[in-house]
Simulated assay, not measured.
Amino acid sequence: MAQDVLVLGGTRFFGKILVEKLLEAGHAVTILTRGTTPDPFGERVTRIRADRTDEAALAAAAEGRHWDVVYDNICYDANEARAAIRVFTGKIGRYVLTSSLSVYEAGSADMKEELVDTAALAVPAGPVDKVPYGEGKAQAEAVFFREAPFPAAAARFPIVLGPNDYTKRLQFHVDRIKSGVSFVMPNTEARICFIHEEEAADFLLWLGGIEAVGPFNAASAGKPKLRQVLGAIDRETGGQAIVLPEGPDSEGSPFGIPDHWAMDTSRAEEAGFKFRELDDWLPGLVRELAGRQN
Rank of each mutant, 00 (worst) to 15 (best):
G64T: 09
E236Q: 15
A60R: 11
G247Y: 08
R94F: 13
S100A: 07
I17A: 13
V96E: 00
N294T: 14
K168G: 14
Y133E: 10
G222C: 08
I159K: 06
R82M: 09
H66V: 07
D175T: 15
V184Y: 03
G162M: 01
P40M: 05
P283Q: 04
Y71I: 01
G208K: 01
E135D: 08
A155D: 05
G291Y: 07
N79W: 06
T118K: 00
F88V: 04
L278W: 00
P248G: 11
R52W: 14
Q293L: 14
I195N: 03
L32G: 09
T33W: 10
F275M: 00
S100T: 02
A59Q: 14
G209D: 05
R146Q: 11
R82H: 10
A83Y: 07
I92M: 09
N164M: 11
R176N: 05
A2S: 15
A61T: 09
G222I: 01
N187T: 02
E141G: 07
R191G: 01
W261Q: 03
E141M: 00
K274A: 15
I242H: 13
P38W: 05
Y71H: 12
T237P: 07
R267Y: 13
R94L: 09
A2D: 10
F13M: 03
A190H: 02
H27Q: 09
E114T: 08
A83T: 08
G238E: 05
D51F: 14
N79I: 10
H260M: 07
Y166V: 13
G107A: 08
A201W: 06
W281N: 02
F216W: 06
E135S: 09
R191K: 12
A62S: 07
G10R: 14
M1Q: 07
D129E: 15
